[in-house]
């Protein structure tokens, strides 16, 4: 068990290092970053001066070591556009995206997983058909479209919820539901398949032959076995939520990382974009690590390994 965790931690550390390196080289090799930063119509001398000031004229290896050194001190540089430390810019937006992603995840989990279980247990009935329709809607409506629809319906027409911005918990509801819809559909589908597969196994019949009701057999045996593939998609979907946040934050004027990413790309705020890419990559690595640890918590066979 310790060895298992130690090995996973080491893998995560290696992945982190690789990501940091790849981000550096992709950002440098895709062109001279100075050109991204200078205003339109700058002279060659101005460009050269800026390049020197930012250190982009040093050899690549020197720049790389400097970059690693800065990261080791959590120094992400200064934004030339916003004239503020990059970490401060990102950190000021982070709570908003975390709240949004958490809201979307909670919505997706508490609706998607029970829906998937219900579709599997009550297969072939009205319940399954109703829920399938809901799942289909969740996975086929484009986020920007359902976002606008929600704003028009619940914000403009019914005045139940604020149309946009980040103004108290009520304004989190619509963006969370819109962002979580796709994940909800994915959780429901995955849970349904996984539970159906487990329901067909001998140990379910055996448990019922001992006198357990279908419900008890599901709760005591099926759900835990069905959880393993579901945990995998939950981790993947959290990653996708961050990608979806770019659109949802833009539609709902939600001041999170996604909106910052859009703004920074348009403003050519090179270092902020780089910081966001690094941050999102770290989140993915952490999610993978969390998934592996969750497997070992669920499955004694994995715990026994290593």
């Amino acid at each position: 068990m310790r060895r298992y965790i130690a090995r996973r931690l080491l893998q995560a550390a290696i992945a982190t290092f690789l990501v940091i390196t790849i981000v550096f080289f992709v950002m440098r090799l895709s062109g001279d970053p100075t050109l991204l930063l200078v205003p339109e119509g700058a002279t060659a001398e101005q460009i050269a001066a800026l390049r020197h000031a930012l250190g982009f004229d040093r050899p690549l290896a020197v720049q790389y070591l400097g970059y690693l050194g800065d990261l080791a001190h959590f120094d992400l540089g200064q934004s030339l556009v916003q004239r503020a430390p990059v970490w401060l810019i990102v950190a000021s937006r982070l709570p908003y995206t975390m709240a949004l992603a958490a809201g979307a995840l909670v919505f997706a989990l508490v609706t998607g997983i029970p829906a998937g279980i219900a579709m599997a247990v009550w297969r072939g009935g009205v319940t399954e058909r109703l829920l399938s329709a809901l799942v289909l809607a969740g996975q086929s409506l484009p986020t920007f479209w359902s976002g606008i629809l929600f704003i028009l319906l619940f914000g403009v027409s019914l005045h139940w919820l604020p149309t946009s911005g980040a103004d108290g918990p009520a304004s989190l509801v619509m963006p969370s539901v819109v962002l979580g819809a796709l994940a909800m559909a994915t959780f429901a589908r995955m849970t349904r398949i996984s539970v159906l597969e487990e329901l067909g196994r001998d140990y379910v019949t055996a448990a019922r032959a001992r006198g357990l009701s279908m419900g008890a057999a599901v709760v005591r045996h099926v759900l835990r076995n069905a959880a393993i593939p579901v945990v995998t998609v939950v981790a993947l979907e959290v990653g996708n939520l961050l990608a979806g946040a770019v659109i949802v934050e833009t539609v709902f004027a939600w001041p999170g990382i996604g909106q910052l990413a859009m703004q920074s790309i348009f403003a050519r705020d090179f270092l902020v974009v780089q910081a966001i890419v690094l941050f999102v990559s770290m989140v993915y690595i952490a999610l993978n690590l969390a998934t592996d640890l969750a497997y070992s918590a669920i499955d004694p066979r994995i715990r026994g390994m290593a």
């Binding site: 001998d202 140990y203 448990a207 001992r210 357990l212 045996h221 004694p300």
Partner: peptide, 29 residues
């Protein structure tokens, strides 16, 4: 089921829940 009449199966390993202990499953009876 289980009290007046019960059943065992061809693949004993498949008929046991891999994620529950032996004791928990026997106790269910």
């Amino acid at each position: 089921r289980g009290r007046r009449m019960s059943m065992i199966f061809q693949e004993p390993q498949a008929a046991l829940d891999p994620l529950s202990t032996v004791g928990a499953q026997v106790a269910e009876g």
